[in-house]
Design a binder for these strands. Structure first.
Length: 565
RNA sequence: GCGGGUGUAGUUCAAUGGUAGAAUGAAAGCUUCCCAAGCUUUAGGCGAGGGUUCGAUUCCCUUCACCCGCUCCA
């Protein structure tokens, strides 16, 4: 059976030509990890480079770019992958990523273990524990309704069901609680933690029709753990960062104090992050080790909405500028319910990856308005929302659950004589996802005539010249008449000019063109008989197949101009 | 994590309880003045582990990986 699927073809090409390999492939691979091969590493470096120069190198801090409220400063950092564990407690990742979860085999629902409670119910010799993840009154009503349904009774027969009450009603299992080793759910009047069951065999999960569908509670810590120092104890437990953003937040003061930036300004970083994803899937799209390109933009709260809109639109344009078709990229504003608790607005930039259904999109980048959540958290401690305001989250003892640094992370504006905590706009892009999107977008199959005029299938990567791993290929048309020597000299000249170039004299010329098409090389230069007489070469365009003659003396300037586009 | 499917050369595919084939790609040579041409030569494979068997790539079990669906994706 031939490969029909477009994504499979892209994966095969990526492997065949050395873009992307499975990690540790000779040992059978490792789920969620990928390696970039000789061409892939160049492609990805070019993606990074395109982002970094757009953000930092080519940024003009004197002039306001089109669409921007004002001019602004931009700087970069590179922060460590392992940070102080308190960073993750305060940021919320520790709590969010460390839950014990229970899966329902029947309904496929997943519950936070410490949210599951319920009551024992008995009728006609049948005894089950009816579980719910709802609170108090709502939970009790839910449990009663579920029990009626399970026993096949009408509403007026509720009294015929015997419910467990209090701590240890007659219905309660008296042996050691099955799940004693786990933190029980918080006590709720009238409902018992699920820990007080003998086993999950007689637990009726919410929405399930039969008891015993729940799995054992399992750790779902999405942060990779390690230890600092040789001693593996809880005190020196550390985490691989699940995002690069915190590196910018905790260095906010350092950057302010050392680099003369003034609000508004952005701090950018490219680096690896790690998430122990439950289901890595879809080639490199969801990996456990991945690279982020993130920028934290600090601005005055009063201007934050304008900056949010500016960055959202600018980041959209970046993808378009580098070859993503408008048909395949959407900018999706999150609905209010979807927003993280601290966010005023978030937009996703999503790409129509070939592995998704038509009309579905996968996230390339999130542009989030984060308010002052991050700087305040790292100053005051972990925050939570209460009556619409962010307040320090308290633990059971009434003290702050996780302490912040206590450092003042506010900003003093010398011009307006105003002190404030800047608001943050965060465009957070996935470098591997962008690389994959560019690869998918570039992938084309077309028909081109061979030397006999017969149409042949051609695979071509129509990569933007800036992203193409190889910019130019040099071919002597034949292996004699001094053509290889002339070609080698031109090859060396391109090397010296710092242009990624390849030399190939192997096989028929058509084959060499196709080889370059497959890896996305935009220009092929062929040295032929006329080079000897007129000192000109042909430059062949990957997309149009057109050839023009260019004098050797003007060759590098000609190509450089074309690469700039 | 659940259910289903698939693992044979770099890639795409065959066949087989008894020495694994092809196409294409790769390398070398000859030829060749512009889009996968021709000829010659070479290298290269049964995902891993265990079991059944005289003998396993083939049958069974486990495991790993990939694909599809669900779930998840702060």
């Amino acid at each position: 059976m031939a490969v029909e699927n477009r994504m499979d073809k892209i994966v095969a090409l990526a492997k065949r030509r050395g873009f992307i390999f499975q990690s540790s492939e000779i040992y059978g691979g490792l789920n969620g990890f990928w390696d970039y091969g000789p061409l892939g590493v160049e492609l990805k470096r070019n993606v990074r480079q395109a982002w970094w120069s757009d953000m930092i190198t080519e940024h003009d801090e004197i002039t306001a770019p089109v669409g921007a409220p004002t001019s602004f400063d931009m700087v970069g950092v590179e922060t460590s992958i392992i940070m102080h564990p308190q960073v993750w407690k305060v940021s919320g990742h520790y709590d969010l990523f460390a839950d014990k979860l229970v899966d329902c085999r029947e309904t496929k629902a997943r519950y936070r273990f410490d949210h599951l409670r319920g009551r024992w119910a008995s009728h006609g010799g049948n005894r089950i524990f009816v579980a719910t993840d709802k609170d108090a009154e709502e939970g009790i009503a839910f449990v009663e309704q579920r029990a009626l349904k399970f026993f096949g009774l009408k509403k007026d027969k509720l009294a015929t069901i015997e419910f467990g009450t209090g701590t240890h009603g007659g219905l309660h299992f008296n042996g050691p609680p099955f799940t004693a080793q786990y933190t029980p759910a918080a006590a709720v009047p009238g409902l018992r933690p699920i820990t007080e069951t003998d086993s999950f065999d007689n637990v009726l999960a919410p929405e399930a029709t039969k008891p015993g569908s729940l799995t054992d509670p399992r750790d779902f810590n999405l942060m990779f753990q390690t230890y600092t120092g040789a001693l593996q104890s809880d005190e020196n437990k550390a985490f691989l960062r699940p995002e690069t953003a915190q590196g910018m937040f905790v260095n906010f003061k350092n950057v302010c104090d050392s680099s003369r930036v003034k609000v508004p300004f952005g701090v950018a970083q490219i680096g690896k992050s790690f998430r122990n994803e439950i289901t890595p899937r879809n080639f490199t799209f969801r990996s456990r080790e991945f690279e982020q390109m993130e920028m934290e933009f600090f601005c005055h709260p009063g201007q934050s909405l304008a900056w949010y809109q500016y960055w959202r639109d600018r980041r959209y344009s970046w993808y378009i500028k580098h070859g993503i078709s408008k048909d395949n990229l959407i900018l999706r504003e999150h609905a209010k319910e979807e927003l993280a608790h601290y966010s005023v607005g978030t937009a996703d930039l999503e790409y129509a990856f070939p592995f998704l259904d038509v009309g579905s999109y996968g996230e390339l980048e999130g542009v989030a308005h984060r308010g002052d959540f991050d700087l305040r958290s790292h100053s005051e401690g972990k925050l939570c929302k209460q009556d619409g305001n962010l307040v320090v989250e308290l633990g059971p003892d009434g003290k702050p659950k996780y302490l912040g640094s206590g450092k003042d992370l506010s900003y003093f504006d010398d011009e307006s004589r105003e002190r404030f905590i800047p608001h943050v706009i965060e465009p957070a892009a996935g470098c591997d996802r962008a690389t994959l999107a560019f690869l998918c977008e570039a992938f084309h199959e077309d028909k081109q005539p061979d030397e006999k005029g017969v149409m042949q299938e051609r695979l071509v990567l129509k990569l933007h010249p800036k992203l193409a791993p190889v910019k130019v290929a040099i071919f002597p048309l034949i292996k004699k008449d001094g053509l290889p020597e002339k070609a080698a000299a031109i090859y060396r000249a391109f090397k010296q000019a710092g242009i990624a170039v390849q030399y190939d004299q192997q096989g028929a010329i058509g084959r060499r063109y196709r080889r370059m098409d497959e890896i996305g090389t935009p220009y092929c230069i062929t040295i032929d008989g006329e080079t000897n007489t007129a000192d000109t070469v042909t430059v062949r365009d990957r997309d149009t197949l057109e050839q023009i003659r260019v004098p050797v003396t003007e060759l590098i300037d000609h190509v450089q101009a074309k690469l700039k586009g």
